[in-house]
């Protein structure tokens, strides 16, 4: 049905999206590359000039940088592991014959709709606060000292909060996949004497592989950029203990006001994201063949 003219019309219809996305991608990127080789500090704007790779070497030589990289990977990896393992278990549980599956889904999905600063702020204050938080009350009730979550375990606390936000997403996707599994196959396996564990291992899990891949892909895109939760709770601290790469760039740009260094950090982040994206896209191409 595609005639010559409808092809032309089709291109015209796609053009606005492509053009704005192209500009959105290329202009800031080009500017970031430019700044990353310049001396550019907002606090001393009169001193400018080319500095070669000095901004980059500052990043690579900063002890905070490697900490930020490992924190970023820890955050992404930790949240993925928690949400997928718990997500599979909870999906299996909800998929059992239970009363009120509809309301159950609504309860479980709710944290996903809570905006990151709110999620971070209620966990930090209402639950994890060392004086007035609920966990502190419990600790006191048991005669223990309250835990200083944000001071002693900043990364774990952030990972915990972010996992709470993303667990619903993983659960719901895995549940959807689970519900498309035919019960005949399982019954046949059961009749042949397969145990619950081997039924899970050889029938349920392979069926969910695609959904698990999708959860990893989508969550990674969002998790690499996590900002609001850290901004609201630890501000990257104490010291740099919970500083991730996005937060380190933010600190360079907004607090240290060193545009050149922040730009170099940005380019490093782009390269890192591209390495991750390369692997994601390869499997995504296979999995998203709509």
């Amino acid at each position: 049905m595609a005639t010559q003219s409808s092809r032309a019309a089709a291109r015209l219809m796609v053009a606005p999206s492509v053009i704005v996305l192209f500009i959105w991608m290329i202009v800031p990127l080009a500017m970031t590359i430019w700044f990353s080789f310049r001396l550019y500090r907002l606090l001393s704007p009169e001193r400018t000039g080319w500095v070669g790779f000095r901004n980059y070497s500052w990043f690579f030589n900063s002890p905070d940088f490697w900490l930020a990289i490992s924190n970023t990977l820890l955050l992404v990896g930790g949240v993925l592991a928690i949400t997928i393992v718990l997500g599979v278990l909870i999906a299996l549980l909800i998929d059992l014959p239970v009363w009120g599956q509809g309301p159950l889904r609504i309860l479980v999905i709710s944290p996903f709709f809570v905006m990151p600063p709110v999620a971070a702020s209620i966990w930090e204050n209402l639950f994890m606060h060392p004086q007035n938080g609920m966990f502190a009350s419990f600790a006191q009730g048991l005669g223990m000292k309250p835990i200083l979550f944000m001071e002693s375990y900043p990364m774990s606390s952030v990972i915990f909060i972010v996992s709470w936000e993303w667990l619903p997403f993983a659960t719901l996707i895995l549940l959807t996949a689970l519900q498309s599994l035919s019960s005949e196959q399982l019954e046949a396996a059961e009749m042949d004497g397969a145990s619950a564990i081997s039924r899970f291992r050889y029938i349920v899990l392979p069926h969910m592989t695609r959904a698990i891949t999708v959860v990893i892909l989508i969550q990674t895109i969002f998790l690499l950029g996590i900002f609001g939760e850290i901004f609201t709770t630890t501000q990257g601290g104490p010291g740099s203990a919970s500083t991730t790469l996005p937060y380190m760039i933010y600190k360079q740009a907004v607090i240290a006001k060193d545009i050149g260094r922040a730009a170099a950090g940005g380019i490093i982040a782009v390269i890192l994201a591209n390495i991750v994206a390369y692997f994601l896209m390869r499997s995504m191409g296979k999995n998203l063949d709509a």
């Binding site: 492509v18 800031p28 990127l29 700044f35 996005p246 937060y247 740009a253 940005g266 994201a273 994206a277």
Partner: peptide, 16 residues
């Protein structure tokens, strides 16, 4: 198009 979403927002903070 999807790949443009993988560019970390913090990376382009300054130009923006």
């Amino acid at each position: 198009m999807l790949s443009t979403k993988m560019m970390p927002a913090a990376a382009v903070l300054i130009p923006m």
